[in-house]
């Protein structure tokens, strides 16, 4: 219905314009041609609109590159391996550590696995630093730098959660919590790698460092490790798995894709920017 009304209106408008230009009324055949043209144009537009609508419904954005996802995967494997082999050394008095070392694998095997995990972690660290030099990496690190806005985002988010304010703060590519986690990871890895290398190569290190440095290194290593593991099983697991938005698992970090719906909800500023960039590209 609306379409035929539209069609009639457009036809009449066009006719009016043409008549003014030609300075004479259009004859029946001419009018028929105008009507046909309008109808064809409208049909084309309608089809385009339908296509666009269908596309946006299942539209995905590429949030992370292959490379980035692979980095995360190796990191995850190494951290899990390190935790499994590190915790029983820290809690060597516990029954489960006892069980592990007496029945599953020996302390020597455990140490070997821990060092494999450590090597993977250092591999990822080097890889990541290399990646930060690429165009993609340079952009991401800029996005990851902490800003004053992050603090206010945090305050606003807490207010929102408490119901003091009704509006959710708008996050960019990385929200304050993601930035926090990233930098905590950077710091933690630095501490763990430094102290870990010292304990690993104590044979060499004993020549250069006083005994109390080893004791400090050991304490820092075990304290930082526990902190990291607790952060992973609370903060990280919540954001990646148990958060109702993504329950049971958030696949973004493995596939690199994020749905438009979550994109708009979680990273509205980035979404807006991407849209702006696309519009600009289309115009050119």
């Amino acid at each position: 219905m609306a379409e035929s009304v539209n069609e009639e209106r457009l036809t009449q408008e066009l006719r009016h314009e043409l008549e003014q230009e030609l300075d004479r009324p259009l004859d029946e055949a001419e009018l028929q041609r105008v009507r046909e043209l309008v109808r064809a144009q409208l049909r084309k537009e309608l089809a385009a609109k339908r296509r666009r609508e269908a596309a946006t419904e299942e539209e995905y954005f590429v949030r992370f590159s292959r490379n980035f996802c692979l980095q995360h995967l190796v990191l995850a494997i190494s951290v899990i391996l390190l935790a499994i082999t590190g915790l029983p050394i820290k809690f060597h008095d516990s029954a489960w550590a006892e069980f592990l070392f007496r029945h599953i694998w020996s302390l020597e095997t455990n140490r070997l696995l821990h060092r494999v995990g450590a090597s993977l972690l250092m591999l990822v660290a080097v890889w990541h630093i290399g990646w930060l030099m690429t165009r993609e990496g340079r952009r991401d690190i800029r996005e990851l730098l902490p800003r004053v806005k992050d603090f206010w985002d945090f305050v606003a988010h807490v207010k929102f959660m408490l119901g003091i304010s009704a509006e959710r703060p708008k996050f960019g590519r990385y929200s304050y919590s993601e930035k926090f986690e990233y930098w905590a990871l950077v710091w933690g890895t630095a501490v763990m790698v430094l102290t870990g290398l010292m304990l690993w190569f104590h044979g060499i290190a004993l020549a250069y460092f006083p005994k109390y440095i080893f004791d400090i290194a050991l304490q820092a290593h075990s304290g930082e490790a526990l902190l990291a593991i607790l952060a992973l099983i609370t903060w990280h697991m919540y954001h990646a798995h148990f958060n109702p938005d993504v329950f049971p698992i958030n696949m973004t970090i493995f596939t690199g894709k994020i749905s438009k719906k979550r994109m708009i909800e979680e990273h509205p500023l980035e979404y807006e920017q991407i849209m702006r960039e696309r519009a600009e590209a289309e115009q050119q």
Binding site: I204, L206, A207, P210, K211
Partner: peptide, 9 residues
């Protein structure tokens, strides 16, 4: 490689 450092601490 242990040196006299081990006596510190």
């Amino acid at each position: 490689n242990a040196s006299s450092n081990v006596a510190r601490g």
